[in-house]
Amino acid sequence: MRLEPRPGTIGDGPAIHWLGQAGFWIDTGAHRLLIDPYLSDSLARKYAGQRFDHRRMMPAPITPEALPRPDIVLVTHAHTDHMDPDTLGPLHRRFPDLPFVVPAARLDMARARIGEDTPFVAVDADKTLEPLSGLTLRVLPAAHESFEQDAAGRHAFLGYAFASGGVRIAHSGDTIPYPGLAERLRSFGADVLLLPVNGRDSERRDAGIPGNLTLDEAISITTEAAAPYLVPHHFGMFAFNTLDPATIEAAAAESRDPIILRPEIGMAMDLRRD
């Protein structure tokens, strides 16, 4: 499988499209998956006037009202830039039968933000399911600086690896490295890893902002997982929680194994089967 970047818009054929932050539209040719879309200004309104005001550094590439209908929506966790009521609520109202995969540990929050009558698929880590015919979904634990579990032992932070239309893609969710992460991805045989690269530090941690992988860690995990492609994300949205895109571009210029593709709004990464 090959990824070939080109100018493109959502809905124009089999490709990976970045929506900003951790959000992706992925058309495998067999299924159209929407992952963690943040397409509103809900956080800017919530934190207006505060130290971390959550103003967008980039405009939303599309509105929730203009999104084509996906076949399924995957939500990794309940932070608003991943489970956004102003994006997911309107999407549910447009497509009442659209299934949403969410952490079982945060099902009550999903109902409140998206809609009580939403056809949820509530999942937990290390489960494999087929939510749609021909779509295999493996649920991964994620450590957003730490593992967080509810009273029933279910993980609040998740990632998803899926096989569809002959391609295998994994989105780690928000996570730092943990023992077994690369092995899980390797055993799934992912062709493409979608990994956060905004890193972490004590200043953000002390402010209640949990961090993620650094770019070097993401590259190392991709190498250990034997995945040919790394698509970094979780940068360029909020000034206090980002990574300079030039750093990603420099790493991409130097790396051939894995191939690093810095996503851009308006770019389609075509999924080509060799």
Score class of each variant (00 low, 15 high):
Pro5Tyr: 09
Pro5Asn: 13
Arg6Thr: 11
Arg6Met: 04
Thr9Ala: 15
Ile10Cys: 02
Gly11Arg: 04
Ala15Thr: 01
Ile16Phe: 08
Gly20Leu: 09
Gln21Asp: 15
Ala22Glu: 13
Ala22Arg: 10
Gly29Trp: 07
Gly29Leu: 12
Gly29Glu: 11
Ala30Tyr: 08
Ala30Lys: 06
Leu34His: 05
Asp36Thr: 07
Asp41Lys: 14
Ser42Trp: 14
Ser42Met: 10
Ala48Gly: 06
Arg51Lys: 15
Asp53Pro: 06
Arg55Met: 09
Met58Ile: 15
Pro59Ser: 14
Ile62Phe: 07
Pro64Met: 09
Ala66Pro: 03
Asp71Ala: 11
Asp71Met: 03
Val73Ile: 14
Val73Arg: 06
Val73Gly: 01
Val75Pro: 00
His77Gly: 06
His79Leu: 02
Pro85His: 12
Asp86His: 13
Thr87Gln: 12
Gly89Trp: 12
His92Phe: 15
Pro96Asn: 08
Pro96Phe: 06
Phe100His: 05
Pro103Gln: 05
Ala105Asp: 03
Asp108His: 07
Met109Asn: 02
Ala112Gly: 04
Val121Thr: 05
Ala122Glu: 00
Val123Thr: 07
Leu129Trp: 03
Leu129Asp: 03
Gly134Leu: 07
Gly134Thr: 13
Thr136Asp: 11
Leu137Tyr: 02
Arg138Gln: 12
Val139Arg: 00
Pro141Ala: 01
Ser146Pro: 00
Gly153Leu: 02
Gly153Pro: 06
Phe157Leu: 05
Ala161Asn: 10
Ala170Tyr: 08
Gly173Met: 00
Gly173Arg: 04
Asp174Ser: 13
Ile176His: 07
Leu181Glu: 14
Ala182Asn: 14
Ala182Met: 09
Leu185Thr: 08
Phe188Asn: 14
Gly189Asn: 08
Ala190Cys: 06
Val192Ser: 09
Leu195Trp: 04
Asp201Gln: 11
Arg204Cys: 10
Arg204Tyr: 00
Gly208Tyr: 01
Gly208Glu: 01
Ile209Arg: 05
Pro210Tyr: 00
Asp216Pro: 01
Ile219Tyr: 08
Ser220Asn: 12
Ile221Leu: 14
Ile221Val: 12
Thr222Pro: 10
Thr223Phe: 03
Ala225Gln: 01
Ala226Cys: 13
Ala226Met: 10
Pro228Gln: 08
Phe235Ser: 00
Gly236Trp: 09
Gly236Ala: 10
Ala239Ile: 02
Asn241Tyr: 10
Asn241His: 13
Asn241Gly: 05
Thr242His: 04
Asp244Arg: 07
Asp244Phe: 03
Pro245His: 08
Thr247Ser: 09
Glu254Leu: 14
Ser255Glu: 14
Arg256Thr: 15
Pro258Lys: 04
Ile259Gly: 03
Ile260Glu: 13
Ala268Thr: 07
Met269Phe: 14
Asp270His: 11
Leu271His: 11
